[in-house]
Nucleic acid binder design. Structure first.
Length: 326
DNA sequence: AACCAGGACAGGT
DNA sequence: ACCTGTCCTGGTT
C-alpha cells in the first residue's frame, strides 16, 4: 500500500505533535476554499500561547489532526511517557518564564486563565463525545457498551482518525471488557494503533468518570452552552433521520469539515466533500455496512418532495441545501 | 467514473 | 403511513 505521507499537505508545520497516519488522505480541505471554518484562534479571547501547559492525558495525540489550533502543546509530556491517568485531571501549568510583572499577580492571572482554558478544553472534549454519542446512538460511558456499541465506536474512531481497519481485532468485546484492558493489551491486539485506541478510550472514560464525580447541575455554570447536559442527556436518542445526521455533522466543523461542510450556513447550503466518508459514517450509524453514496444520495433525494432538502438554485455536484436553515 | 433524478419495491417502525 | 435501504434505468458532468 502506498501510503501518502502528510508532508505535502503541510500538516507538520502547524502541529508539532502531529502523528502521521499511514492511511491519511488528503485533508484540510477547508484550507482551499474555506468560507466558514477557520481555526478559532481565541475562543476565549486568550492569546494562543496560553494553551501551552494544558495537558489532558492523550487528548493532544488525538485531536492535533482534528483541531491543530486547539491544543498547541509545546512541551507536553511525550505521549508514551506519562502513565495514562484514569482521571481527567489536568496537569499544573508549566512554569512560565516569568517576565517583568510581579510574580504573584501574574501567577493569579495565569491561574485564572488556565482555569478558564481547562474548563473550555474539557467542555470541548465533552461536546465532541456527546456528538459522537448522538451520531452513533451509544451511551457516553464505555462501561455501558455492549459489543455492538464497541464495534460502532471502533469503526467511528477508525474513520475519525483515519486508522486502518482495527475493529476486527476487538471483536466480541463489550465495553467492560474493553475498559479492563491495559494499554499493553491494546497494543497486543493492534501493535500500531493500540495505543491510539487506548488513548481515545481513556478520554471517554475520563469524561464518564468526571460526570460521576461532579453533579451536572453545578457544572452548567457560567458558560454558554450544553457541554454537560448534553453528555449526560438521556439515551437512547433512537431513530435519527438522515437530514438530522447530516446537520449534526455540519454543526461540528472542527471534526467533520473534511467530509461535509457549509458553503453558506445562512442559506443552509452545504457540500459533501468526501462522499465515501459520509456514507461510511451513515452506514456505521445505521448498522448498514453496505451503505454507499448512491443509496445515501437516494435518501437525500426523497427529501426533495418533502421540502427538507433541495438542490440549490445553481446546482453543483455534491452540494445540497436545507430548505429551512437554522 | 462519479454524480444525479426518480421509479419501484421491501422491510422495519 | 412513513422512512429509508436497495436496486434499477437513464441522463449529466
Amino acid at each position: 500500500m502506498g501510503s501518502p505521507g502528510c508532508e505535502h499537505m503541510g500538516c507538520t508545520a502547524h502541529s508539532p505533535l502531529y502523528i502521521s497516519h499511514p492511511h491519511a488522505e488528503p485533508q484540510l480541505a477547508w484550507l482551499d476554499e474555506a468560507e466558514d471554518v477557520k481555526p478559532p484562534r481565541s475562543l476565549l479571547g486568550l492569546p494562543e500561547p496560553s494553551w501551552s501547559g494544558v495537558y489532558l492525558p492523550y487528548y493532544d495525540r488525538l485531536v492535533m489532526e482534528e483541531k491543530p489550533w486547539v491544543l498547541r502543546m509545546t512541551e507536553t509530556p511525550a505521549p508514551a511517557a506519562p502513565p495514562p491517568s484514569r482521571s481527567p485531571e489536568l496537569s499544573p501549568p508549566a512554569p512560565s518564564q516569568a517576565q517583568d510583572s510581579p510574580p504573584e499577580v501574574e501567577g493569579q492571572v495565569e491561574e485564572r486563565c488556565l482555569e478558564q482554558v481547562q474548563t473550555m478544553v474539557v467542555g470541548e472534549v465533552l461536546k465532541d463525545i456527546n456528538t459522537a454519542c448522538k451520531l452513533l446512538n451509544i451511551a457516553p460511558d464505555p462501561l455501558d457498551w455492549n459489543w455492538v456499541h464497541v464495534q460502532k465506536w471502533l469503526l467511528w474512531t477508525e474513520h475519525l482518525y483515519r486508522l486502518p481497519q482495527v475493529s476486527t481485532l476487538f471483536q466480541e468485546l463489550n465495553g467492560r471488557d474493553l475498559c479492563s484492558m491495559t494499554e499493553a493489551d491494546f497494543r497486543q491486539r493492534s501493535l500500531q494503533f493500540g495505543d491510539v485506541l487506548y488513548a481515545h478510550l481513556d478520554i471517554w472514560r475520563s469524561a464518564a468518570a468526571m460526570k460521576e464525580r461532579c453533579p451536572p447541575e453545578d457544572s452548567k455554570s457560567a458558560a454558554d452552552d450544553d457541554s454537560w447536559s448534553d453528555v449526560i442527556g438521556d439515551y437512547p436518542s433512537q431513530p435519527i433521520h438522515l437530514w438530522q445526521f447530516l446537520r449534526e455533522l455540519l454543526l461540528k466543523p472542527h471534526n467533520y469539515s473534511r467530509c461535509i461542510r457549509w458553503l453558506n450556513k445562512e442559506k443552509g447550503i452545504f457540500k459533501i466533500e468526501d462522499s465515501a466518508h459520509v456514507d461510511r459514517l451513515w452506514g456505521i450509524r445505521k448498522n448498514r455496512p453496505a451503505m454507499n453514496y448512491d443509496k445515501l444520495s437516494r435518501s437525500i433525494r426523497q427529501y426533495y418532495k418533502k421540502g427538507i432538502i433541495r438542490k440549490p438554485d445553481v446546482s453543483r455536484r455534491l452540494v445540497y441545501q436545507f430548505v429551512n436553515p437554522v
